[in-house]
């Protein structure tokens, strides 16, 4: 690990100014400290933004404003989140371990990097994300954990966050502050697909800082929402696939469906096609299956992960059926 300076940001403007000059933001450190130690990333200065404002409060419109330095554990345990956005609590609690959730911040969670083992293997593997133009050893390698949607011949890595899958389902807005001022962007537009440049993972501009996340007021489908994660062991493991789902019914018909998928792409995957297919239909397992199959029509499995297509189908059907059952 190369030497670096550690500085606590005086305020957001100080953090942005330092980042503009090349410093890297430090949240809880649960990812970047490891990346620096493994020499996957290098930094000359870490500017600690984890001590900046860390509040959770209701927005004027009846939604929720979450500062970026709120810890994952605190967000999961917050009464308003548990009551109004249960899918978010469950997704957070599905991630990592209690120790890591105590450390990790909301902003850092959004910016965490893939867990593709070839990305981390500096000495032994080629990786276009780590070193553009060198190749991708996952394509013909151990790709059980890799993408089935939105990948390219340059990169098949997945985004590892559970929280972001829930945020995608919730239509969350990401608030940014940068050298050119403030702006907001939907979480589903924040991460970009790999295409020909997998080293570019988000739409962040140099120096831009995630300052917070805003959730719109909960719709009926959000109040009735859940998160299911399928993994190789029952706790403390990254997802093979995960599903955030919400359902609203009126007179035996679906009036609102929300589905987001994790572990399938370089970004949390909002299943808009499946959602549209469910509007107005009776909430049967056959209808759920037909809807998610529309979403997965373009799925392209790799040598080791074709099982993910069936796994997504079954998990979506099971989750939506449970939500529909709870409505009865």
């Amino acid at each position: 690990m190369r030497t670096f300076e550690y500085i606590r940001a005086a305020d957001r403007a100080d953090a942005v100014a330092r980042a503009r000059r090349g410093a890297r933001f430090l949240g809880g450190g649960t990812n970047i400290v490891d990346l620096l130690r493994q020499n996957v990333e290098q930094a000359s200065e870490l500017v600690d933004v984890s001590r900046l404002d860390g509040a959770i409060r209701q927005s004027d419109g009846g939604g929720l404003l979450i500062d970026a330095s709120v810890r994952n554990a605190a967000l999961a345990a917050h009464p308003l989140v548990r009551r109004r956005y249960p899918v978010l609590s469950r997704a957070l609690l599905a991630g990592a371990s209690a120790q890591i959730r105590n450390m990790a911040t909301v902003g850092g969670n959004i910016l965490q990097r893939t867990r593709c083992m070839y990305f981390y293997d500096v000495e032994g593997a080629r990786c276009n994300k780590r070193q553009p133009g060198t190749g991708c050893d996952a394509l013909d390698g151990f790709n059980r954990y890799h993408a089935i949607l939105g990948a390219s011949d340059q990169c098949v890595a997945t985004h590892p966050s559970d929280m972001c899958v829930a945020l995608a389902m919730l239509d969350a807005l990401i608030h940014l502050s940068g050298p050119d001022g403030k702006r907001s962007i939907r979480l589903t537009d924040f991460h970009v697909l790999p295409n020909a440049s997998p080293h570019i993972e988000t739409v962040l501009k140099p120096g831009e800082l995630i300052t917070g996340v805003e959730l719109p007021p909960p719709s009926d489908a959000v109040t009735h929402s859940e998160y299911r994660k399928v993994r190789d062991r029952s706790s403390y493991a990254f997802a093979l696939i995960s599903v955030a789902g919400g359902l609203a019914l009126t007179d035996g018909r679906v009036t609102e469906a929300r589905i987001a998928l994790g572990g399938v792409a370089a970004r949390p995957w909002r299943a808009a096609r499946a959602e549209a297919a469910l509007i107005g239909v009776a909430p049967t397992e056959e209808a759920f299956l037909a809807a998610i199959r529309e979403e997965l029509a373009d799925a392209q499995p790799l040598s080791g992960n074709a099982f993910k297509i069936v796994l997504v189908e079954r998990t979506v059907v099971a989750l939506l059926a449970a939500l529909a059952g709870a409505h009865q």
Binding site: Y6, G29, T30, V33, A73, I100, M103
Partner: peptide
């Protein structure tokens, strides 16, 4: 493991459990 995968380094930081291997001392 020294990379946040085992929990052997767990300590209490202001009463909360954290992994000391992924915490910089400066933090």
């Amino acid at each position: 493991c020294d990379q946040g995968a085992c929990g052997a380094c767990t300590v209490l930081l202001d009463g909360n459990r954290v992994l000391s291997c992924l915490t910089l001392a400066a933090q």
